[in-house]
Amino acid sequence: MSRFSPEFFDSVYRETPPWDIGAAQPAILALLDEYPPEGPALDVGCGSGDHVFALAGRGVQVLGIDVVEAAIAQARARAEALPPAVARLLEFKVGDALHPTLLQRRFGAVVDSGFFHLFEQDQRDRLADELEATLLPGGRYYLLAFAVEFPMPNTPLKVTEDELRARFTAERGWRILEVRPAQFESRIAPVPAVAACIERLRG
């Protein structure tokens, strides 16, 4: 299960969340540079939209989904200031990002900046299954997650390279293109993280 409640995120988005740095995470942008995504793309737990804007700016059709209505409202408001050529490539939706199959759409890329690390192991297993069903063959999953855990409530759970390699295996239909140490930038201080690009094997 997740240690976070929807009410927690609702309260955080009444102000500026510490993870909202006003731009896409550099570690995610580096993965997108090295392993270019194929559209359409999905940003799970998109928050106020930084990675959606980054993908659309690269010419990729993209949907951002988040359960927090305030976050989606902020993202839509920010999108109004974009050039029309970029704005037409993006969409935001309030919904359950843990179950992207409910969208009944397939994607060439899924971006996950700070979503996977919200969950305990059972829900991570479920999310991996959902990603398998959501990504097109050859589609890529771009992940950035905390690599440390803090002994306090409402903080993410640790994700390790070993865990990712054990969960996203060839036997389960995956190929790890990259997994490496990274930093998760925040308005407080950078946090040690793990970054990965994982490809859905072609049938």
Score class of each variant (00 low, 15 high):
Pro181Arg: 15
Val110Gln: 00
Pro84Trp: 08
Ile65Ser: 05
Arg3Ser: 15
Arg200Trp: 04
Pro153Cys: 05
Trp174Phe: 04
Phe53Val: 11
Ala41Phe: 03
Ala189Tyr: 08
Ala79Ser: 12
Glu185Asn: 06
Met152Trp: 07
Leu31Met: 06
Trp19His: 13
Tyr142Lys: 03
Thr101Phe: 11
Asp43Asn: 02
Pro6Ile: 08
Pro192Asp: 15
Ala128Ser: 01
Leu31Lys: 04
Val194Glu: 00
Pro37Asp: 00
Phe119Ala: 07
Phe116Glu: 02
Val110Cys: 03
Phe92Asp: 09
Ser2Ile: 05
Ala133Leu: 06
Ile198Asn: 11
Gln74Ala: 07
Glu120Phe: 03
Tyr141Arg: 09
Glu132Asn: 13
Gly49Pro: 01
Gln121Asn: 13
Leu82Gln: 11
Val68Thr: 14
Phe150Trp: 12
Ala23Arg: 14
Pro84Ser: 10
Leu103Pro: 08
Val94Tyr: 06
Glu132Lys: 12
Phe115Met: 14
Val60Asn: 10
Ser186Ala: 10
Ile72Ser: 02
Leu118Gln: 12
Leu31Tyr: 00
Arg187Ile: 12
Val94Lys: 04
Pro36Leu: 02
Leu144Pro: 12
Arg167Cys: 11
Pro153Arg: 02
Gly108Met: 09
Arg3Asn: 15
Lys158Pro: 02
Ala166Asp: 15
Glu91Leu: 03
Pro18Ile: 10
Asp112Phe: 09
Val110Trp: 00
Arg187Pro: 02
Glu132Gln: 15
Thr134Met: 13
Leu31Ile: 06
Ser11Gly: 08
Leu127Lys: 01
Gln123Tyr: 09
Gln123Cys: 04
Leu89Asp: 02
Ser186Trp: 06
Pro17Asn: 14
Pro100Glu: 04
Ala170Phe: 00
Ser5Phe: 01
Glu130His: 06
His117Leu: 12
Ala27Arg: 11
Pro37Val: 03
Arg124Thr: 13
Glu15Cys: 03
Leu82Ala: 11
Ala109Gly: 06
Pro26Asp: 09
Ala97Pro: 00
Ser113Thr: 13
Gly139Met: 05
Ala133Gln: 08
Ala166Phe: 10
Ser5Val: 02
Phe107Asp: 05
Pro192Gln: 15
Ala182Glu: 12
Pro190Met: 02
Lys93Gln: 14
Leu90Ala: 14
Asn154Lys: 08
Leu63Trp: 09
Gly139Tyr: 00
Ser48Met: 08
Glu199His: 10
Val148Tyr: 13
Ile28Asn: 10
Ala77Glu: 13
Arg3Ile: 15
Phe92Ile: 14
Ala85Asn: 03
Phe119Arg: 08
Ala85Ser: 07
Gln123Met: 09
Ala133Asn: 07
Arg105Ile: 09
Val148Asp: 14
Arg175Asn: 05
Gln183Val: 06
Ala54Ile: 04
Ala24Gly: 12
Pro156Val: 15
Cys197Lys: 05
Arg202Pro: 00
Gly138Pro: 13
Leu42Ser: 12
Tyr142Leu: 03
